[in-house]
């Protein structure tokens, strides 16, 4: 029996945590890993898994078809080349971004949980960086994986598997480089837009409109009007930038005679430069947004 008293506070056994703390690096890593899982709907309901899965599946189709042909048909066919792969799946990239970016940054704003992050080891800058890294990785899944599969498929479809690898290993560098830069570009635009609003619908529509609208505008300005000034519109379209720098990195001019790259008539290197600039701008906007957002 305790000392008799009119009022008492009971010791319920709560302790302060006195052990070692993992630190900031681990905190960012945790944010990164959790965000990346969330992008694919892992740890969430079925509804959150369906859309990313469908889009990744669709993006894989060209590569899988090539792989299947390589295995089944013993002939030297290369239906889809690395350089026009992005042209084929560009809508999927945009949609995938529009589906996952709003969840990646919107949930914390919607649930007002930003304050919980900022009250812990993660700073505002860390948060933006961690989220961007997760988004970039998530985008790599849809840019790099199908390309690598395509590479294997192409190798299988030749008579001489080892010979193809030996001959085409230099393709690997542009494959990885285009995937990395493409993912970085799309991720930075998507997150910069999505971070502006807690509402998923606004963010999704904003991202889609940005990608598709600039694409359409470039299509008309470059393909239909073709004047000195309007041709510059091609640099405002992220999808065309991806097409441009991948043509540059693969050192293959566009094969499609209708390609806007031909209509614009610019050298290809500037596409890569503009893509890098736009990526940095997007990341800058994202960081700036998290410096100011009300936690």
């Amino acid at each position: 029996m305790t000392e008799p008293a009119a009022g008492s506070i009971y010791d319920l056994g709560y302790r302060r945590y006195e052990g070692a703390r993992a630190g900031r690096r681990r905190a960012i890593w945790a944010l990164y890993a959790d965000s990346l899982r969330g992008a694919f709907g892992l740890g969430r309901g079925t509804a959150a898994k369906i859309a990313p899965a469908i889009l990744i599946g669709l993006a894989l189709i060209p590569a899988v078809v090539q792989l299947a042909i390589g295995v089944l048909v013993p002939a030297d066919v290369e239906l889809i080349t690395h350089d026009d792969y992005y042209n084929l799946v560009k809508f999927l990239l945009g949609l995938y971004c529009a589906v996952i970016a709003p969840d990646m940054v919107g949930r914390d704003q919607r649930n007002r949980s930003l304050v919980l992050y900022f009250a812990r080891a993660i700073s505002r800058l860390d948060y933006a960086v961690g989220k961007y890294a997760a988004m970039w990785t998530a985008m790599l899944v849809i840019t790099l994986v199908p390309q690598l599969l395509l590479f294997v498929g192409n190798a299988l479809s030749t008579d001489d598997f080892g010979g193809y690898l030996g001959q085409s290993w230099d393709q690997l560098l542009p494959i990885v480089a285009t995937a990395a830069l493409g993912a970085a570009l799309i991720a930075s635009i998507g997150l910069a837009i999505a971070a502006q609003t807690p509402r998923r619908a606004f963010a999704t529509v904003g991202i889609i409109v940005t990608f598709v609208f600039t694409l359409a505008l470039a299509g008309v300005m470059v393909g239909e009007l073709t004047t000195e000034v309007t041709r510059l519109a091609i640099f405002a379209s992220p999808f065309n930038l991806v097409e441009g720098f991948s043509a540059w990195m693969f050192r293959v001019p566009p094969s499609d005679p209708d390609s806007l790259l031909l209509a614009a008539g610019y050298p290809l290197a500037p596409y890569a430069a503009v893509a890098v600039a736009v990526t940095l701008l997007g990341v800058g906007l994202l960081i700036r947004r998290y410096q100011r957002v009300e936690a």
């Binding site: 859309a51 889009l55 949609l95 529009a98 589906v99 889609i208």
Partner: peptide, 9 residues
């Protein structure tokens, strides 16, 4: 999202 997939895919 489903509508977007219908329209664009």
């Amino acid at each position: 999202v489903i509508g977007l997939i219908y329209v664009f895919v």
